[in-house]
Design a protein around this nucleic acid. Structure first.
Lengths: 138, 138
DNA sequence: CAATAATTGCACTTCCATTGCATAAGAGAG
DNA sequence: CTCTCTTATGCAATGGAAGTGCAATTATTG
């Protein structure tokens, strides 16, 4: 577990018990989570602390924010294929209309989008909605 | 102006003074508007009325909702090139980080997105962020 | 250990979205 | 035309998420 310590250090984040717990919680989830999810997982902790911890992670490019159109912000750990700190990271997200979960399709990059003359594209948010593998068929 | 009456009838929406005003307001804007924008334009009317009018329009596929990532829902009239009632309408939206306005790029269709095995794609939401033509140097 | 800086918890506030209910307006039957 | 029934509108209030100020606690450094 020395790994995590080093990871935190490399990201310039001070290690606290809270942060470690939240990080592990995120690492164990394979879907994006809401602040509410984190709250439910750590009922003893205060909302604000969780909120600010996530914000810290976001600032330090440990998690990225996902806007899947539900109106509620979700978060997911940045993975090896994910370069959220670089603005050219453009993986897409899939939102399941059935189970309401959102996952990162890290290895599915967003194709180049053409914009009209005079427009400057800096970032792209792409969310595919439908039915996920767990909900479809099986 | 008989046109509008017929249009409303074809959409199965009863014509009221309020609805006509809001429709005209939307028609005259070339950017997506927030509920707040509509409120400011019609200070004499109640928020709820405006809200429900927009919702009615949405139900009847007169306007479509846009989630541009600002956290505030915006709305825009469905245009001739826009088939919001059909789930295959996939035009993209552009959000300007400078003036904070969002416009429909109706004639820019979203390319086909490949999703992994087992996933069923039903809809795609794509927002390009950057600087719009009015804000970029020109 | 003292002094400083960062983190956490509590209490609020703000803002948008949404609903319940009473009233007003409109459409249709007789 | 009037009564009835449906739909729209207005007012009040609620709920949920996001964010902030401040005090208290915990960690870090000298």
């Amino acid at each position: 577990m020395n790994n995590i310590e080093q990871f935190f250090e490399s990201k310039h984040i001070r290690l606290t018990a809270m942060r470690l717990l939240i990080y592990k919680f995120l690492a164990q989830k394979d879907v994006a989570v809401t602040l509410r999810d984190v709250e439910n997982a750590f009922e003893k902790a205060d909302r604000t602390t969780l909120y600010r911890t996530i914000k810290t992670f976001e600032d330090k490019a440990v998690v990225h924010q996902i806007d899947d159109g539900t109106g509620i912000t979700k978060y997911a750990l940045c993975e090896k294929g994910c370069n959220c700190d670089i603005e050219t990271d453009l993986h897409l997200h899939f939102h399941c209309n059935n189970c309401n979960e959102t996952i990162c399709l890290t290895d599915h990059k967003i194709p180049q989008i053409k914009v009209p003359e005079g427009f400057v594209s800096e970032n792209v948010n792409l969310v595919v909605k439908g039915v996920c593998d767990k909900c479809s068929g099986q």
